[in-house]
Simulated scan of single mutants.
Amino acid sequence: MGNTPAREGEDLRLFHTGLHECGYWPERQARDLVLDPRDPRLPDWYPLALGWGFRRSGDIVYRPHCASCRACTPVRIPVDAFAPNRSQRKNLRRNADVLMRICPAERTEEHLELYRRYLSTRHAGGGMDGHGGTEFDQFLVGRWSRTRFLEFRTDTPEHRLLAVAVTDMTPDALSAVYTFYDPAEADRGLGTYAILRQLQWAADEGRAHLYLGYWIAGHAKMDYKRRFRPLEAFDGRQWLPFPDEIP
């Protein structure tokens, strides 16, 4: 990657990463397009980049760009058109005892302990289960992004931490970066609940979209995203309605 800072008026540069192991299909090789992470205008470009199908990881804004695979499809929910289905309404009722608080994106020991417990259960052997505080910050906390942690806690005297939804804010949208939760509370459906509350937050503040990152055809852990309707998918040129039937 080049290291010369961009001058005013220059286009923002794009780089290809080298081949690396795919985070979703370990037997495949992946490659990404990355916006120049040294460009000081990156915070201004980020809202546009979301609309081009990019995503943030730490300080890096990237989009999968693999030679022989197009499984990663950027998806977003148009906030005003969304209405929870029967299953999602049940989820809201099931979690009626949960309190939500919007916090600065600053790691605490409580966050890290929950994150590590989540990874050791949900992603054991996936390469992330050894993450500590440094990796937490590198993955979730951007130095330039406008990010918040949505904390979900029990409505009890101890206010036990159940989940954290890392969420980026832009003028017209929210982006769901990552959610981790107490694996002992899996029956609550806290991943779904976090999206429903992010949608409500976006609606309350008049934001047009909630970006969900990538839906991945054939990947069971990503299939939940298509249950939020209406849903839009980016085909590389424009956002289109997500199909009702998947081939």
Results as ranks from 00 to 15, higher is better:
residue 161 L to V: 11
residue 31 R to D: 03
residue 190 L to I: 06
residue 203 A to V: 06
residue 112 L to N: 07
residue 31 R to K: 13
residue 12 L to H: 05
residue 56 R to A: 05
residue 9 G to S: 03
residue 198 Q to K: 08
residue 183 P to A: 02
residue 59 D to E: 02
residue 81 A to Y: 11
residue 38 R to Q: 07
residue 20 H to R: 15
residue 172 D to F: 00
residue 166 V to T: 12
residue 195 I to P: 00
residue 117 R to I: 15
residue 139 F to C: 05
residue 154 T to E: 15
residue 51 G to I: 11
residue 137 D to C: 11
residue 31 R to L: 10
residue 234 F to D: 09
residue 233 A to S: 13
residue 202 A to L: 13
residue 58 G to S: 08
residue 185 E to T: 04
residue 109 E to R: 12
residue 33 L to G: 00
residue 192 T to A: 03
residue 232 E to Q: 13
residue 48 L to S: 12
residue 190 L to C: 04
residue 110 E to S: 10
residue 1 M to I: 12
residue 53 G to H: 12
residue 174 L to A: 06
residue 244 D to A: 09
residue 218 G to L: 02
residue 54 F to P: 05
residue 102 I to V: 06
residue 105 A to F: 01
residue 89 R to A: 13
residue 210 L to A: 06
residue 9 G to F: 03
residue 46 Y to S: 07
residue 109 E to H: 05
residue 128 M to D: 09
residue 208 A to E: 14
residue 41 R to C: 06
residue 80 D to L: 14
residue 164 V to Q: 02
residue 63 R to H: 08
residue 39 D to M: 06
residue 246 I to R: 15
residue 165 A to V: 03
residue 96 A to R: 14
residue 174 L to R: 01
residue 212 L to K: 13
residue 135 E to M: 02
residue 140 L to Y: 11
residue 228 F to R: 15
residue 193 Y to C: 12
residue 184 A to W: 00
residue 23 G to P: 00
residue 105 A to R: 04
residue 79 V to N: 02
residue 57 S to L: 07
residue 70 R to N: 10
residue 61 V to Y: 00
residue 206 G to T: 10
residue 45 W to M: 11
residue 7 R to Q: 13
residue 213 G to H: 12
